[in-house]
Nucleic acid binder design. Structure first.
Lengths: 132, 132
DNA sequence: CCGAATCCTGATAGATACTG
DNA sequence: CAGTATCTATCAGGATTCGG
């Protein structure tokens, strides 16, 4: 597996472009956006905003633009009033959707085990999950 | 699939614990750490630091602790001098490794398509994908 | 009204230095 | 060796604003 700069794709190497892409994909909202578009086909901006609870307009726009430049979604503006913007997955986006859906599914399936592990790990967690 | 609080697991719902877990898993370093532990079995702190280029000590520690409380890795301290700490995947961690590895593999496989899309999208920045 | 850009502020990642 | 403490740069989120 060799990419255009002639080096092997290796996500463990900080320099490899794979790393940047992985960082995008691993982003908080990417999983949910791609997943939503996979199940619904084409969605409008506000449909996505409503579907993905808790996302801000800023992050939604920002993530969608990143997905667009990476070639995962296409953005179609209908010059109507009120404005109408459609987002849909490209073939590349569809192929990305597979591992991404697998990840969300895994999480939903194993949430019980994880919550049990959390309870067992720390019998008294007040706040601040990280180290501080 | 119903979790302990009696609600269906739904990552699209902001309240669902699945969301928090997904945020962890989708974190920048989690993918690389779990993946490294999968291939190497057991690794020491500095082995992980060396393997995963670009990770800071802070983020490595923080991510490892999160993985530990979520039940994905076990942390074993050998009371020797110098200190010796081993990290290894739990069975739950192993099962998580499958979708995570799939994601990294996908990225490494499709990096060509993505870079092509990026070049086509805008003759400008690769990483500054945010809106400005 | 929808989609998005801007400004402001609190949280978070990262670099560096220090410690048992 | 394996972290911790601290400081700083960066980024996410909220509110507001704007253009069609």
């Amino acid at each position: 597996m060799v990419e255009s700069s002639g080096l092997p794709a290796d996500a463990f190497c900080a320099k490899c472009p794979t790393r940047q892409v992985l960082d995008h994909i691993a982003g908080k909202w990417t999983v949910l956006i791609v997943d939503a578009l996979l199940s619904d086909g084409t969605m409008r901006y506000t449909e996505l905003a409503r579907r993905i609870e808790g996302v801000s307009q800023k992050m939604l726009t920002q993530t969608l633009r990143a997905l667009e430049t990476d070639g995962f979604v296409t953005r179609t503006v209908h010059p109507t009033s009120p404005p109408h913007v459609d987002y849909t997955l490209t073939p590349l986006g569809h192929s990305l959707a597979e591992p991404i859906t697998a990840l969300r599914r895994w999480t939903e399936t194993h949430i019980n085990d994880i919550e049990r592990a959390r309870a067992a790990a720390r019998p008294l967690p007040p706040t601040g999950a990280g180290l501080r």
